[in-house]
Simulated scan of single mutants.
Amino acid sequence: MNIEVLYEGTPLPVQSVTWSGDITQAARKLDVSLVNTTDGRTQARRIEHGKELRLLYDGRELFRGPVFAFDIDARGRMSVTAYDENTYLTRNQDTRIFRNMTASAIVKRLCADFGIPTGTIANTGYVMPKLILRDKSLWEMMITALTYTRKQTGRRYFITSREGRLQLLERKEQIVRWVLENGRNIIDASYAQSIEDMRTQVKVIGGDPDKKPIIAVVKDDALIKRFGIMQHLENVDPDMTASQVQQRAKQLLAELGTIDDTARVDALGNPDVTAGTAIYVRESMTGLVGGFYVSTDSHTFSGGTHRMSLTLSATDDLPVMEYEEPPEEKRKRRKGADDKVDLILNAKGIG
């Protein structure tokens, strides 16, 4: 294992490096510790905000991003923090109205407007009629559009950064390539299960709730038999058809009708195991056996060793942000419907 941290292309004499990520966060983070002096009196290298750090692992680039913070003490001991380029998604806010656009088109538009370099942008396909997003970060806007798309199509997309460029990729079924087991590469582990957030029945209401609502109820009889009725209620866009409302209910039950499994594993490091990766675990004491997904990861490189700390989940979660139509739009929609009814009644000489 050969670790190298480059500052503006020049290697730094690092003591330890922590490289981390979380599926719910826009950017991955790099924390570097070093002794930045050769004589004990002056800095060997001036570190500046906005300059680029790169992390190389046996010559392979794992991270690239600008410096956002540093501190140094009187002995020259220094820590530096950088984030990948996707950090700008959470550092820019705006109000936007998107009409007849796909989520991928929204991602491209926002990146172009705010100078964020892009790489591969998958075509999300589904055209959303209108999204009104007020006082939101670019990250919130993108995740809202992707959540909306997933609920309509069942297709899942995620945002990442590679070589300094934002990537929008489709999350497909993953093949497990990495196995963690005690006696081999696991250092420590813990495991927990919960049905706190489980729902065994879902009710979705669309259409006009005051006149002709569209209601879909789906249930999991096996779960109800084991755990009782626990219903999730959701009101959706009044313009959705009956089949769309039914599909939304089925999709929600698939997501909510699960037992939450969470686990934490400390193991010998593998740079390919990061947030979003599928792995297989065998740990006898906790009973951890089977496939899991990495929710958060933290890789530490120090003294020639590489260790990683992982939070695992039984479900392949992605960040979710629900779209809520602004109140004035709802009022406008309702008034438009009432006006249409008045016109029909007047034409028929009624009212």
Rank of each mutant, 00 (worst) to 15 (best):
N182T: 14
I143E: 00
E8A: 10
S302P: 02
F301Q: 04
D39P: 06
A112Y: 15
G291F: 13
H232E: 13
T315A: 07
E255S: 07
P66H: 04
L233F: 13
C111Y: 00
A82H: 00
E234F: 10
Q251H: 14
D188K: 12
H232M: 12
K212Q: 14
V17M: 07
L133I: 05
Y323R: 06
D317N: 11
D208S: 12
R134M: 11
P11Q: 08
Q247C: 05
W19T: 03
Y88Q: 01
G303M: 12
G50Y: 03
T18R: 08
D317Q: 07
P327S: 11
N123V: 14
E328D: 15
Q152K: 07
V217F: 05
T160G: 01
S313I: 01
I159H: 03
T124F: 02
S295R: 08
D31G: 10
R134A: 13
Y280D: 06
T200Q: 03
G290D: 11
N36W: 09
M142A: 05
S79D: 14
G59P: 10
P209Q: 12
R307I: 12
M128P: 03
R165Q: 00
T311M: 10
T144K: 02
A242R: 15
T300R: 03
Q246L: 10
M308E: 00
T102L: 07
V14S: 03
Y126A: 04
R91L: 09
R334K: 13
D58I: 04
Y57G: 02
T18H: 00
G336L: 10
G125D: 09
A314P: 12
L168A: 01
R162P: 10
S104V: 08
V217Q: 04
Q93E: 14
R46H: 02
L288R: 01
D73A: 00
E255G: 05
V5T: 01
R64D: 13
A278I: 01
P66M: 06
V32S: 08
M1D: 05
G291R: 15
L12V: 07
T102V: 05
V17Q: 03
E48P: 09
Q167P: 02
E329A: 15
A27K: 02
Q247M: 04
K348H: 11
Q247H: 03
P209D: 09
N123T: 15
R171M: 14
D84W: 06
Q174L: 13
G257M: 01
N346L: 13
R226C: 12
P11K: 06
Y57F: 09
N100R: 00
T241Q: 11
E4P: 01
G119H: 10
R91K: 15
E170K: 10
M78F: 03
D272T: 12
D220F: 04
H232S: 12
H232V: 13
A249R: 08
R96E: 11
L180G: 02
Q244F: 09
Q152T: 05
H49E: 13
E140Y: 07
M230E: 14
M240E: 11
T311E: 11
L146M: 04
L310E: 06
L12R: 07
F98T: 05
V107E: 04
F68H: 11
E163T: 02
D197T: 15
W139T: 08
H49S: 13
I187Q: 10
A249D: 02
V217I: 09
V17I: 00
P13V: 04
I229D: 13
L62Y: 07
V289F: 15
M1G: 04
D208Y: 11
G349L: 10
